[in-house]
Design a protein around this nucleic acid. Structure first.
Lengths: 220, 220, 220, 220
DNA sequence: CATGAATGAGAGTTCATTCAT
DNA sequence: GATGAATGAACTCTCATTCAT
């Protein structure tokens, strides 16, 4: 029946159009990431992004309402990759301790290997000051960050840590990773003649030990 | 002999002149700090600094070669205050463990209470990228940062930690403080329902325990 | 005969098509008016008009060659409403003087009650400079404006004014109304502590008096 | 005494500097007026003004805080010229009626000869909508407009009109002039085959007649 | 030493319009 | 007929910096 196509044609058309729109949006976003990676936050301008994407400045606004939204999208996408990286590190049949180590390590590695993503993660605080994302978007992004640490938190609980302690340790881990990489990227760690990897490993060991101590008592 | 003075007079004159120059430079720097504290990194412009100092913009360049250098000087001065704060926390006759806690706590408190100084400390990496300070200045600043942590390092050694471990732990402490405050200022800690103070205390406890374990064995 | 229809069908088809075109054009124009009434001249953009009409920007150009032409059409339509308003104010059996007053008053009231229409009328001279309408369209619009004042002109003649004087007085009336409303809308009348209505009434009285004086003397 | 110069030197210096600043500001303003005269309100941009003044865009902001302020200054200066024109038309020893005619005529002539100044006067209502001048400036400008009509008002009173009527007539005169010129500049007067001059003369005659009628009766 | 003036580059954003599909 | 994409020019305004005086 030829009329069948007339039923679905509009849908298909709009689907195709939407897909193309998404593709181009992704292209713009990729350009934005490139610019950002190459020039950093300060060097990133709408003009630069447009140029790198092969567009005129005005065209960008067909895909993003403004500059902040691009940053938001960039950050969101970064967090997706972070989550993917963490998930990939978690194999089936690992012991809780292994999962703790694997999850934490993957988290650390992601930001060690992608320093600009760390930038992005802290963009919202240009000079330690929260930034202009919509609260809704901010919540969503926060949630994804939490998600990336969920395996660590779960592992701690399974090892035997109480919920409160597990959450606190997860938070502390995040802080430690952030601080370590911050110092590392600013060369403040080299000045102490230290190696971020080694320090992180030591932190992990201590954490595993604390978890074990909080775990099943001798009589269990 | 009045002619004798003609030998030394130029020196004295130049010394006086230099002293006045320093004084004015300090005045400009104070103005810069005020602006920076009030408006943050984004709101700080040469115009603002000049105005607050009672100068016109061009005059500033008689004292600092550029904006970045002002930030450098501001950071240097901030580190002096940090060192002063740490020193003030260390009383005579404290046990090594008390000195460890007091020194670390003073360090943490300084940046907790002066978030703008933390900004400054990380400005050089706007977005995690090392900034344009001269290597010489950078070294000097790093040295002062190390100084502020020296009491912690010394205490760890006195408790009995080997030199290498003491240095590593000091570095890790710095990272932890930085990470904790970073998360705190960006609201990322609240989202985990945690309190930076409590987390820091827990970290300190664990560190003290590690130091004690590394300390003098029962028979030593 | 069905084949007969093949003669006329194309005509009918094209007639139908043209009618639909007109209808859509009217729809766009209505949208433009809505936007214009709501947002004024400054806030009116092609995007807004298109959106309010349920179109994309490009579609508008199928109905109007450009923005100015939309304004032209809007003005034309405004003048139709003006004429309708004036016509409605003229009842049968009124005396010439009553018709003078009623017609002039309706004219004044229309623009007093629809300030946006006054904007439109003067848009063509954004800043007093004649605008880009085609001479033909301009003539047509002028004609409709004249039409709206024709009852006044006729009444003056019937009262007894010579043709030249009647035309001059009609023109002067138009100027007075325009000036009064201009001043009123820009707040320049309030600053004199005056009321446009009262001033207009006074002008009307004086005009009626002049008309009467020019009219048939008692013995003439 | 050489020290005398040290007393006054700073003053003289600052006076000279201020004078030069004023001169350059006037130069910028003149450029703005030129642009405005040549291109109208729509075509006037900061870039254009700067270019015509021989400056880069940023330099303009050393003389005016923003675009609106330039318009304000332009309008202010226009009103000064208007006042000067009116004052120049008033000779000593004129009868009140002559002063009425001379003042009104000068007012009319100024805007007839300088249509752009009329634009400016109505700039505040881009499309009949009051504009963004500070209330203080707006008041000052309004006052100068009132000043320009003061001779007319005074003359009406001297002829014998009560204060209220004199004010109303003055306002009506302003409206009439505005409307007449508005119509004239937009070609709406030509379409009636009328001449603004003649219409204005007729209005003046009628006004003079009304004033005389309101004046002292023969026996009064 | 300090000023006041000016530069020049650049920022984000808006808009009427065009055109292939 | 209408869409969606894109253009290109324009907009106001800010800033660190330079330099003759």
């Amino acid at each position: 029946m030829t009329t069948t196509s007339s039923d679905t044609a509009p849908d298909r058309r709009s689907a195709r159009l939407q897909a193309m729109h998404e593709a181009r949006r992704a292209h713009v976003l990729a350009a934005a990431r490139e610019v950002f990676m190459a020039l950093g936050l300060e060097g990133t301008s709408m003009r630069e992004i447009a140029q790198r994407a092969g567009y005129t400045p005005g065209a960008i606004y067909g895909y993003f309402p403004g500059k902040e939204d691009i940053y938001g999208a960039l950050l969101g996408e970064s967090l997706e990759r972070l989550n993917a990286g963490v998930a990939a590190a978690l194999a089936d049949g690992q012991s809780p301790v292994d999962r703790l180590r694997a999850g934490a390590r993957a988290f650390f590695d992601f930001y060690r290997d992608n320093p600009r993503d760390l930038d992005l993660g802290f963009y919202l605080f240009q000079g330690m000051k929260p930034r202009g994302l919509t609260p809704a978007l901010d919540d969503a992004l926060n949630a994804r960050l939490r998600d990336a640490l969920q395996p660590v938190r779960d592992a701690l609980r399974e090892i035997g840590m109480p919920a409160g302690a597990a959450l606190a340790e997860t938070t502390a881990l995040l802080a430690h990773v952030a601080g370590l990489l911050l110092l590392s990227h600013t060369g403040r760690i080299r000045m102490f003649g230290q190696d971020p990897e080694a320090l992180f490993d030591a932190y992990l060991d201590a954490l595993a030990a604390r978890a074990a101590a909080a775990g099943p008592g001798p009589a269990e």
